[in-house]
């Protein structure tokens, strides 16, 4: 029990099959994964190896076919739909590859969305969102719409949105793939700096080898299986190519 509590995420034999019969696709074939509290874990591997499927299951937005999965001490799949939605809203932060910021809303309104979904009053939610934007260094962009922001700025807004409600588990899907190298470093630096705490865990799906040094642990996946785990001492310093972030 004490051992289970040491991990924010723990899976055993997780499989996921899409489709049936001859058309069945085995996306995951028995995943064994442990994500300790306070660690930044990167899932790496070729396209189609099951990384995105795995974080979808971990985040409670996709059901596995078989196996066991404990996230923050609960199995999301065993929660009732409404409870699971609430659990996600309270405990999980999302950073998407394409940012998924609502174009009609300002940066602050976008960041406030998770709080509004949890029922926080608008005024308080916006205030918290503005504070979060300040933490990611774009407080001056709070009233700007996403379409008027650069890719790096949009991803900062997305990070602010993922963290504004203080989630204990953050999943990021290719957070740097739409960014240039320097912006990728800055975004990962922010994620590592703001998100990493002892009571929090971060899982990042990425192809970007330039950000591997931020990870405490790199999980290499191949063909729906964990092919290897490398534990390392994370180096959270930015490796910038230019001198102007």
């Amino acid at each position: 029990m004490a051992e289970a509590k040491a991990f924010a995420v723990r899976t055993h034999g997780v499989t996921k099959v899409f489709g049936r019969g001859a058309a069945a696709v085995h996306a995951l074939r028995g995943i064994e994964l442990e994500v300790p509290w306070g660690e930044l874990v990167m899932l790496v591997g070729p396209s189609g190896c099951g990384k995105t499927t795995l974080i979808s299951i971990l985040a409670g937005i996709l059901d596995r076919t078989e196996g066991e999965c404990q996230v923050l001490g609960v199995d999301p799949q065993h929660l009732r739909q409404s409870t699971r939605t609430r659990w996600r809203g309270e405990n999980v932060g999302f950073v998407f590859q394409q940012f998924n910021l609502i174009p009609a809303l300002t940066a602050a309104e976008n960041v406030a969305v998770p709080l509004l979904l949890l029922g926080h009053p608008r005024r308080k939610a916006i205030a918290a969102a503005e504070a979060q934007l300040e933490r990611v260094g774009i407080a001056d962009k709070r009233k700007v719409r996403p379409t008027q922001l650069s890719g790096g700025q949009q991803q900062r807004v997305a990070i602010a949105r993922a963290l504004v409600h203080e989630p204990r588990f953050v999943v990021c899907d290719e957070p740097t793939s739409a960014l240039d190298a320097d912006n990728g470093q800055i975004v990962m630096g922010l994620l590592a700096e703001i998100a990493m705490r002892g009571d929090r865990a971060l899982v990042v799906v990425t192809h970007d080898a330039r950000i591997f040094h931020f990870a405490d642990r790199i999980v290499r996946m191949d063909d729906g299986l964990v092919a290897g785990v490398r534990t390392q001492t994370a180096d959270r310093t930015l490796k910038l190519h230019s001198h102007q972030p």
Partner: peptide
Amino acid sequence: LRYFGALKAMGGSTWL
């Protein structure tokens, strides 16, 4: 739809 999907992922219920 992808924004609705994002809202759903972030804790927005279907009813909402």
